[in-house]
Computed example of a mutant assay.
Amino acid sequence: MPRSLRLLTLVLAVALSACGGASDPTGEDAAANALAVALVPVQREVLAHEVVASGQVAAWEETPLGVEVAGLRVIEVRVEVGQAVAAGEVLLRLDDRAARSDVAQARAACAEAEASLALATANLERGRALSGRGLMSAADFDQLGALRAQADARRATAEAALDAAGLRLSWTTLVAPDAGVISRRAVQPGEVVSPAAPLFHLIRQNRLEWRAQIAEGDLSRVAVGQAVRLRGAEGSIVEGRVRAVAPGLDAATRTALLQADLPAPGALRAGMVAEGRIETAQAPVLTVPLAAVVRRDGFAYVFGVDQSQRVVRHRIDTGRVFAGRIEVLAGLEEGQPVVGSGAGFLGEGDRVRVVADAP
Rank of each mutant, 00 (worst) to 15 (best):
R277G: 01
I326Q: 03
A197P: 00
D24H: 11
R107F: 10
R351T: 15
A53P: 04
R185T: 08
S170M: 05
A109E: 14
W210S: 01
G335W: 07
D357L: 07
F299G: 13
N123M: 08
D261N: 08
A18T: 06
L167W: 15
V193A: 04
A356E: 08
G134L: 05
E50Y: 12
V352Q: 02
V273S: 10
D142C: 01
I278D: 02
V74F: 05
G21C: 09
A165Y: 06
C19A: 13
R185H: 11
A138Y: 06
S4L: 08
R155K: 15
A58L: 14
A22I: 08
R243V: 00
Q150R: 07
L262I: 04
T172W: 01
T26A: 10
V245T: 13
V355Q: 12
S131Y: 08
Q336Y: 08
S194N: 13
V293G: 00
Q43D: 14
V228Q: 00
A18G: 13
V245P: 07
A111N: 06
R320E: 15
G319E: 08
T121D: 14
R269V: 11
R241K: 13
A158P: 04
G235V: 04
G324N: 08
V193R: 03
E333K: 15
L117R: 13
V328P: 06
T173N: 02
A281E: 11
L268D: 03
A32M: 12
S183V: 09
V352R: 00
T280H: 10
M1T: 11
I278K: 00
G134K: 04
L147W: 01
F299D: 14
E80V: 15
N206E: 14
R184Y: 05
A176W: 02
E159K: 11
V175L: 05
A274D: 03
P247W: 07
A161I: 03
F345A: 15
Q226N: 06
V294F: 09
V355P: 07
R44P: 05
A161Q: 11
L147E: 10
A34R: 02
E348W: 11
V69Q: 00
W210L: 03
A158V: 11
L65V: 10
R277Q: 12
L268G: 02
A120I: 01
P289D: 15
A223M: 11
R310G: 05
V40L: 09
A108I: 09
A164Y: 14
A291T: 10
S236P: 03
L268S: 04
Q213T: 03
L72R: 14
A36R: 12
A274S: 13
A129E: 14
D152V: 02
